[in-house]
Each structure stands twice: as C-alpha cells, then as structure tokens.
Amino acid sequence: MPKPLVQNLFANATPPLEGEHFDTLLQPALSVTIPAHNEARFIGKGIESVFRSAQKAGHPVEVVVALNRCTDQTQSIAESLGARCVVEDKKCISAVRNAAIRASSAPAIATLDADSWMSEDTVAAILRMVGDDRYVGGGAMIKPERMSPGIFFSVLSVVPYVIRHRLSYGMFWFRRDAFEALNGFDEQLVSVEDVDFALRLRSLGRQRGQRYGTLWRDGITTSCRKFDMFGDWYLFRNPGLVRRIFAGQDRAAADHFFYDVKR
C-alpha cells in the first residue's frame, strides 16, 4: 500500500515531531470532498492526485470521503492514504455529497467524484479562483481517460441538457459560506444534483455581484467506467434514459445507471 502523501506536502515546512501526523500541525486551506460507493478500484488514484496537487501548490489540503453503502476496501484504502471518512448510507448522492462537505473543516471546498483525479496544478488553480472575490465558485473542464466514436456520440446526446445552461460541472469549488447559503445539494434529487447546484450557485453569485467561474486549463480527468460497463454507444442509443436521468427524480433510472451498478 502506498505511503500517505499527506505526510509529505511541504518539503520546506518544519518536520512533524516523531509519531505526530502532519495534518495535525497545519489547518487545511482546502477541503476536497469525495462521495464513494464501493470505490476500491479508483479511490486511491483520486486521493493521491489531490495530495500530489496540494504538494505542488504548497498548501495543506484535507480529503474527506463519505462512504455510501460500502462493502469493499474503500475505507481502508482512503484512510491509509491520509483521507478522513464519514458514513452516509442514504441512497441519494446529494445527501452523500452534503455529508462529506459538512464533515470538512476548510473555508474553501472542492468536490471530486471517486473515479476522477486532479492534475498537478488543480489545487493551485482552485485556491487562486476561490480566493478571488469576483467569483462565487464554479466548475471545471472534464477530460475522459479515453475516447472512441461511441463515447463521442454518447457525450453529444448529453450535451444539449448541459450546454443550454452555459455552465461547467465535473468538480465544484466554492467557499463554505456559499454552500451554507444554498443549504447544500438538493436532497430531493436522485440525479443531476450537480446541474441543480451549479444553477443555484450561479444565481447566488448574481445576487452578490459575483461570477460563476470555470477551471479551463487545470480541470480533472474522469474514468470511462460507465462506458466500459454499459458500452460506449449506450447513452446515444438510449435517449429515453438520458431524459429520465435529467429529470432528476426518476428513481428507477437513477438506480439503473448509478446506484445499483455493481462495482
């Protein structure tokens, strides 16, 4: 098992006392929150990418993982790498996201899915943007780990639902006061909670005279596991399922594509 990168974030910092964990010495500048349901396959890569990016940025970062109905080694892997875990077993991604964020402690927050990972410059970019009072928060560009004709056309089938809002998603970054003002992610939704959150975050920004921003260059990479599982052409060939998922409250569609998928 790899050693926790959290213990080596600052090469120039005063070394911790023998037996003392690094993250007890410095308050985190950023909390990265991750919802996780049986994510043993991916969680390690995501957490390591966060701490590696934090190390390059030169700022302490905490990772909080919300365990959702986990029966695999997600918790032990996450904790071995320096993350802190909480449990939220509601079958609702909004509730899981909220649990991770409310268990975190930094004034700045970023969300990351368990099968995604940051670039080396992501943390620095987040802290630069979240510290700019012109922005209420924002999203990021997402790069798939692979591409194929089927994935391309499947993504095109989703784009109309997303692009009409002219907002980025994928990974959100914001200050804690904005999260509290919005009362977090809407727990009445079982899907597209990210789209809803982005719209409400932008609306809050307009009320405050702030903009919704996007990390264009230093976004995230995400796995193609859904395509690996269902097939690259699946969403393109099932437009009805796409419509049902984007309705936000279709439990059967959400269970089929998200909650009840074996991992």
Score class of each variant (00 low, 15 high):
92 C>V: 12
25 L>K: 12
218 D>R: 01
244 R>V: 04
100 A>I: 05
237 R>I: 07
234 Y>R: 02
220 I>M: 07
210 Q>L: 08
171 M>G: 03
29 A>D: 10
190 V>S: 03
2 P>W: 10
9 L>C: 03
69 R>I: 09
63 V>I: 05
255 D>G: 05
123 V>Q: 00
27 Q>P: 10
128 R>Y: 09
257 F>G: 00
246 F>E: 02
191 S>L: 03
45 K>H: 15
28 P>L: 07
214 T>F: 07
47 I>L: 02
61 V>H: 01
206 R>V: 13
64 V>T: 08
134 R>N: 15
259 Y>Q: 07
79 E>T: 10
23 D>A: 12
250 D>M: 06
109 I>W: 00
109 I>T: 03
94 S>F: 08
197 F>L: 07
72 D>I: 09
23 D>K: 11
261 V>P: 03
175 R>S: 09
6 V>I: 14
26 L>E: 12
16 P>N: 10
128 R>N: 11
87 V>A: 06
53 S>T: 03
32 V>T: 03
129 M>H: 08
136 V>S: 04
22 F>Q: 13
35 P>H: 08
111 T>M: 02
31 S>E: 04
167 L>Y: 10
17 L>G: 15
10 F>P: 03
91 K>M: 13
255 D>P: 06
147 M>P: 03
238 N>G: 04
197 F>I: 07
192 V>C: 12
152 F>D: 14
19 G>M: 08
18 E>T: 14
14 T>D: 14
54 A>F: 02
46 G>V: 01
32 V>L: 02
11 A>Y: 13
248 G>Y: 04
48 E>I: 13
166 R>A: 13
147 M>N: 14
132 D>G: 07
100 A>W: 01
238 N>A: 05
69 R>A: 13
136 V>D: 01
